[in-house]
Design a protein around this nucleic acid. Structure first.
Lengths: 214, 214
DNA sequence: GTCTATAAAAGGATAGAC
DNA sequence: GTCTATCCTTTTATAGAC
């Protein structure tokens, strides 16, 4: 019996994060699909393939589990960060590059579901809403602002207020499409819809920041 | 007994919409403040000042009540509609006017709460999400597109695709501020924050649609 | 139509064995 | 750590008197 117990303990130690990982995965699935309110702990346990008590053993309660999930997803958003101040290609090319990456990121089904879940509970979990904002929109705008400042010094464009201009650029990219996707009106992830938005935004942005050539 | 019954019936007829109105008001308050999931029928009945059974007598169930409320709010959005194709003032002036009305409308606490409630339940109630989109963003863009078409024919601006340009204009106005408000990060309804956005959007829009003066 | 009281079910959280 | 079985609160919805 002692041996059996020891074997089981070591097995548990070895698989320390196995169950925990399963819970995180299952809970993500449920929370992001149906939102906080409609997600039941039973459904989460079932999706994770563990018992409900195991879920409670790892995370104390439903709200802390939700916070852990969402916080992790927000941190993942921070990952693809790259400095672009040094990028010396033509401004239009760089902007187009940034635009395509941005629009693919925000329109991804993953990000859509995350955003919906956070908006729905922004009153109950204000910290999560702020974490999302910082990891997503804020970080993107800061990165672009740094690039625009360099562009301004190189006299390639005339950017009086980099932060404001960066926010404008991303706002133009979200356009109506982001709204439609958030509302679930456009279900498909149609690449062809996004391409014209990139064109439009880059062109309009450059027109609005062209240096006066008196 | 026949007389008493008749009297009661007529009394009920007279106050037919009194209780119903109270329910609509109370339910709006609850639903828009805490969302569909967190709203209990008890809380709604209490807010309306009626018994729970009265709520069920008027609206069969929680979801139909929610639909009735949200649908009504969306219809209210449609009310302030005015044709502006005929407005012959300077384009910059008209756009500024449109911009200010738009930004005040979408940033109003009322609209914010409506939007959050709809987004949170866009999976469960897709029709409501679509109703909101049509009554709000879609309708605003259509109205501006009609105006831009007239402007284009008058050669005041060069607008190749009125619908696309209209969507761009409103996207520029939402900017980062709409996102922050939706997430509940900016709590206050600060007018001073919106004014620079109007400036920026009108200027950028005109720059991007200026007719070539070869 | 409106109320009070109650049924019926779902869901968050815990107890105790292993 | 993990499971099965259970508790208890909340919540939707209904019954029946007036």
């Amino acid at each position: 019996m002692g041996q059996a117990a020891a074997a089981q303990v070591s097995a548990n130690d070895g698989a320390l994060s196995a169950k925990r990982g399963a819970i995180l995965t299952g809970a993500s699935e449920i929370f992001l699909n149906v939102g906080y309110g409609a997600a039941s702990m039973d459904a989460i346990a079932q999706a994770a393939g563990v018992s409900k008590q195991t879920v409670y053993a790892h995370f104390g309660a439903k709200d802390t589990l939700f916070e852990a999930i969402i916080q992790q997803k927000c941190d993942d958003l921070l990952a693809p960060a790259s400095a672009m101040e040094e990028d010396c290609r033509d401004v239009a090319v760089v902007l187009r590059d940034i635009a395509e990456r941005f629009i693919n990121a925000i329109l991804s089904p993953e990000n859509m579901r995350l955003f919906r879940a956070i908006v729905g509970e922004s009153t109950r979990f204000p910290e999560l809403a702020e974490a999302f904002y910082r990891a997503g929109p804020r970080k993107a705008a800061d990165g672009l602002a740094a690039y625009l400042e360099a562009v301004n010094e190189r006299r390639e464009l005339c950017v009086a207020n980099p932060k404001r201009s960066a926010e404008l650029f991303f706002a133009m990219l979200r356009n109506d499409l982001y709204m439609r996707r958030v509302l679930g009106i456009d279900r498909s992830f149609d690449q062809n819809e996004a391409a014209p938005l990139v064109d439009q935004a880059v062109r309009a942005f450059i027109d609005a920041h062209r240096c006066e050539e008196t």
